[in-house]
């Protein structure tokens, strides 16, 4: 299926409150959907026989600091059956004093599990109903999110120590 046809099909099922915008770049379309409806959209993309995006190739995050909404999730999809690709995005706002939150799509594509764990530790995005919300790559004692734009690239002695601090100092 052509990219425009996929977009048209999606827009036919979901209204403009869900499909917030559509972009095209070098023949690849991407739709930005409302973050709180991501599960519905993903389930449709997977289950619809004309689309059948059975393969989730990648999940990643973007920090658009200082734009608002600040964070963005990007999902890259592939259909083995129809051999077409598609990209879905969702912008997540950071409420003051609270973590940015979006639903986990692990229940639709189990492969999202590790991708979401990495995105969670790197950007501090919380995935609701994630089955295994541990860190993936960073040391367990770190509390910071290194891929955020306001994070200093060399880290700090306090936040990213070489060795875990022993309990009780030194």
């Amino acid at each position: 299926m052509k990219q425009e046809e996929i977009v048209k099909k999606l827009s036919g099922v979901f209204g403009p409150d869900v499909i917030q915008s559509t972009t095209e770049f070098r023949g690849e379309a991407a739709v930005t959907v409302a973050a709180d409806r991501i599960l519905e959209v993903c389930r449709f993309l997977k289950d619809d026989p004309d689309l059948s995006f059975a393969f989730l190739s990648f999940v990643g995050g973007v920090d658009w600091y200082p734009q608002v909404p600040r964070f963005e999730m990007v999902y890259q999809l592939y259909s083995v059956k129809h051999r077409h690709r598609f990209r879905v995005k969702a912008r997540i706002d950071e409420k003051p004093g609270a973590d940015p939150v979006i639903d986990s799509i692990t229940e639709i594509w189990p492969t999202a599990n590790w991708h979401e764990r990495e995105t969670a530790e790197m950007f501090g995005i919380v995935f609701r109903n994630h089955p295994d919300p541990r860190k993936l790559l960073l040391p367990d004692n770190w509390k910071v999110h290194p891929l955020r734009k306001d994070f200093p690239v060399i880290g700090t002695e306090e936040d990213t120590p070489d060795l875990p601090k022993r309990a009780g100092g030194s």
Binding site: L138, P146, F151, P152, V153, I154, G155, D159, T160, D162
Partner: peptide, 13 residues
């Protein structure tokens, strides 16, 4: 790798 994730020389330890 002058960054947050890499030990800046193993001779520190």
């Amino acid at each position: 790798y002058k960054n947050y994730a890499v030990v800046q020389g193993i001779d520190r330890y």
